[in-house]
Simulated scan of single mutants.
Amino acid sequence: MGVSGSGKTTVAEGISAATGLTFAEADGFHPPSNVELMRAGVPLEDAHRWPWLRELAGWMAERAAEGVSTVLACSALKRSYRDVLRQGPPSVDFVLLDGSAEVIRERMGRRSGHYMPASLLDSQIATLERPQPDERILTLDVALTPENLVAAAVSGLGLLPDGTG
């Protein structure tokens, strides 16, 4: 989890590769209307997010019912969003990729083909609700290399190469 440009997809794909967990990119679940808003630089409102979050929770729950563990790259910026995701599978752990806006903005400037403009970073940072003491959220510094972030996430979550742990 984290703001756009924090490395969610890169780290989640790395966790999937290291553990065999089934990967999904939450952005791929957005309806076209949400994508068009973001592409136009319009921040999504909660009303846009609720159906999307429920679909993500359902996707994870379906995989869990099949005995398949998942890793999802998803912003999950608010506690209420994380609470919806927690309603999916029996257990959900979060990894927050956190760091300075400067580092994240610089990374956003280097990527191509993503519909989320760097202009929305400030709104995402303003929306981010820091983890509460009762939430199990591993926080990692985005200044680490992708390889180190993946290793820290796998270790911090207690995952094994077969996705158990």
Results as ranks from 00 to 15, higher is better:
Ser75Lys: 11
Ser75Gly: 12
Lys78Phe: 06
Lys78Ala: 15
Arg79Glu: 05
Ser80Phe: 04
Tyr81Ala: 03
Tyr81Arg: 06
Arg82Pro: 04
Val84Pro: 08
Val84Gly: 03
Leu85Met: 08
Leu85Cys: 10
Gly88Ala: 07
Gly88Leu: 01
Pro89Cys: 07
Pro89Gln: 05
Pro89Tyr: 00
Pro90Trp: 00
Pro90Met: 07
Ser91Asp: 14
Val92Gln: 11
Asp93Arg: 15
Asp93Glu: 12
Phe94Met: 04
Val95Met: 05
Val95Trp: 03
Leu97Cys: 13
Leu97Gln: 06
Leu97His: 03
Gly99Glu: 14
Gly99Leu: 02
Ala101Ser: 14
Ile104Gln: 02
Arg105Val: 01
Met108Gln: 11
Met108Gly: 06
Met108Val: 03
Gly109Trp: 03
Gly109Asp: 02
Arg110Leu: 14
Arg111Phe: 01
Ser112Met: 10
Gly113His: 03
Gly113Leu: 01
His114Asn: 06
Pro117Thr: 09
Pro117Leu: 10
Pro117Asn: 13
Ala118Tyr: 02
Leu120Pro: 15
Leu120Phe: 10
Asp122His: 15
Ser123Leu: 09
Gln124Tyr: 00
Gln124Asp: 07
Ile125Cys: 07
Ala126Ile: 08
Thr127Met: 10
Leu128Met: 12
Pro131Asn: 14
Pro133Glu: 14
Pro133His: 05
Asp134Tyr: 05
Glu135His: 02
Arg136His: 14
Arg136Ser: 13
Arg136Met: 03
Arg136Leu: 08
Arg136Glu: 13
